[in-house]
Write a protein that binds this DNA or RNA. Structure first.
Lengths: 258, 258
DNA sequence: CGGCAACTTGACGTTGATCAAGCCATGTGG
DNA sequence: CCACATGGCTTGATCAACGTCAAGTTGCCG
């Protein structure tokens, strides 16, 4: 939980385009929105405080009124809700470059929890700073809106996945999505690729039980699509796409304006 | 499919506050955002074309690039996606006053379909008009963003519902949500209250089959919570809330700024 | 009055949950 | 460097929820 303040560059992250630690966030926005150099600079100059958090650390709690917007620089986090019987459902996964709780600027109380799925590095930005930036710079407001809309689109695909696909396809679909989302933030194309997630977390993501996840992983492994075990590797993306009838249009990967 | 253009008042809708046919839309936004009288006037003066559509009419198709934003004045519509095996999943329900496809202004192609659940009355507003209004008036941009964020919150609750609750609780939960959402747009508090939805549609909403929906409806009826049959009535909201462990915080019903 | 769409009900099948036991890697303290 | 504690993975046996198939029935609209 080491802290670090201000514009000091972090060595764990390539500070592409000389925009400092937040550059991964800005790059992410640029994938789906146009931002002028000035807009990018304004984003890079946002005040922030870096935090390193352990696995499982709670970042937002249902009922909270947040004052900072955490931006994920490294690692993974997830949103989740719990049912009356204690059943957990993960309702969103966030990858590096994502703003974790932009919406708290617009709603009184959080309707879900957020936790670190892996050890994470987070930049805490005061919500007010983001809000006023969005007010002054329409392009930034628009980029943040696009980000929000995109998360909605992913959520809808998850509803289809959980509501209508069987366990094997459901799992394969999630792995495909993870592949593309991580591929997007990685510099070079991914090769054999490792997913840092436990079987229990997969169960909470897919509305299944850990035992059944285990059996499905074995099945996919039998088909040569993945390597399972302590670490989870994607070996044959095309096979996973076939099994889950994957289509990437809901990720809107080609949304960059001309 | 009768059409009607311009500011001619429609007799099917109370034109509260003298803001014309779009007043229900404006009222809806006011439930969660503050808008000045000028903002409200600007919204009321949006150009539109009224359309009456039959049950089942497709309003948006996956892959489309929309140019108009349909605003629902009367009736219900739903967003849905279909899986490879033809299974349908309804991923959102829209009630009167909702903007149906605001997001098309920000994404290249639609990632889902929209259809009329009942006969509907819709105001077609050019997307460009809404976009430029949002650019000129930050409060309006903010109100539309709040609306988008709220839909995301509902989607997350649906993920929990479908992923983690059993069929009976799932159904009860949906009925509670419908009650509150319709209650919000109705002037007076609702009494015995009728849901205009078929069992097949309930199945598509909840990731279940029509037969199983039927059995669960009978079960809820046995507990005196609803009256089922040709029409579906909610008799005992408290019982439904108990069964589904319903909490309304995800609806953010008290989000009006002080 | 006839046709259709939605609802209803029963018998049976399958997917995925539950329960339970054991295994295997990692890391920690002695 | 070993012992053992721990968290996650693995596997089998059994069970329940929900799906499937099929045959009515009901109410509505032309």
């Amino acid at each position: 939980m080491a802290e670090q303040t201000g514009p000091a560059p972090m060595d764990r992250h390539e500070t592409a385009m000389g925009l400092g630690p937040l550059s991964i966030f800005i790059r992410k926005l640029l994938n789906r929105s146009r931002l002028s150099t000035l807009d990018q600079q304004a984003l890079a100059n946002l005040p922030y405080k870096i935090q390193n958090l352990d696995v499982g650390t709670q970042i937002l709690r249902e009922g909270d009124r947040a004052l900072v917007c955490p931006i994920l620089l490294d690692g993974f986090t997830y949103r989740y809700k719990v049912a009356a019987d204690g059943g957990r459902q993960i309702v969103a996964l966030k990858v590096p470059g994502d703003a974790l709780d932009f919406q708290s600027a617009y709603l009184h109380t959080a309707d879900h929890d957020i936790r670190a799925l892996t050890p994470v590095v987070i930049a805490m930005v005061p919500l007010r700073a983001i809000e006023s930036l969005a007010e002054d710079r329409p392009a930034i407001a628009r980029a943040l809106l696009v980000d929000t809309i995109l998360e909605g689109s992913i959520g809808r695909e998850w509803l289809l996945n959980i509501g209508r696909r069987n366990a094997e396809a459901r799992l394969a679909h999630l792995l495909c999505e993870l592949y593309y989302r991580i591929d997007e933030i990685a510099g070079a194309p991914l090769d054999t690729y490792e997913v840092p997630i436990t079987q229990e977390q997969l169960a909470d993501l897919l509305g299944l039980t850990p035992v059944h996840i285990n059996r499905m992983l074995k099945r996919l492994e039998g088909k040569g699509a993945i390597r399972s075990g302590r670490r989870l590797h994607i070996l044959d993306l095309a096979e996973l796409e076939r099994i889950s009838d994957f289509s990437d249009i809901y990720l809107h990967r080609n949304n960059v304006p001309a």
